[in-house]
Amino acid sequence: MTVLEELIQALSRMPGIGKKSASRIAYHLLQTDQELNTRLARLIHGIQKKIIRCSTCGSFTETDENPCTMCTSPSRDRGTLCIVEHPQDVLTLENTGAYHGLYHVLDGVISPLDGIGPDQLQLGKIVIRIRESGIREVIIATNPTEEGDTTALYIAHLLKDLQVRVTRLASGIPVGGDIEYADRITIARSLRGRTELGR
């Protein structure tokens, strides 16, 4: 295997990158400034050493900022805790600009079929965090899948003796979406979970 082929094969292991895109990237790297390649190589090389999991919430942070800036920020609402499946979900929620509380990353969802039970997730820490800080509301932001539901219900059970409000993200028709183009299951489920309008 040539060096180029090896690079293409390695690149095609990235999510969302097929063989075609991989060779386009490889040929681009071959013809671009040496400087870009050096920088890319340096960044890729260092990423796993320089970026770690926050010891409090489990999201990604840099080595010299642990706990992460979100966990230590005095300007955030320290009474609300949002529980997400994966570290990248934190970024998604942050980008909305609508949430200013704290996070907790589970690192997956309960799925016995995949060998993932409560002990494989960062669940034990949640109870301790809530007890030790003044958290009043826990927002469960797991995906609306069966496993996400299981995990949400399990967390609700876990927290039922604590003085804390437990909520779950709403699901339904996407905002700005046209009902005409929403898929039928989404509409049917939204109908089931319809809400009362204030009069």
């Binding site: 309960i110 016995p112 039970g117 409560p118 069966e146 539901d149 219900l153 399990y154 059970h157």
Partner: peptide, 14 residues
């Protein structure tokens, strides 16, 4: 099968 009693109550509801 895993004898995980903690999860059964949740699965029962679902």
């Amino acid at each position: 099968k895993d004898q995980d009693e903690r999860l059964l109550s949740v699965y029962d509801i679902q």
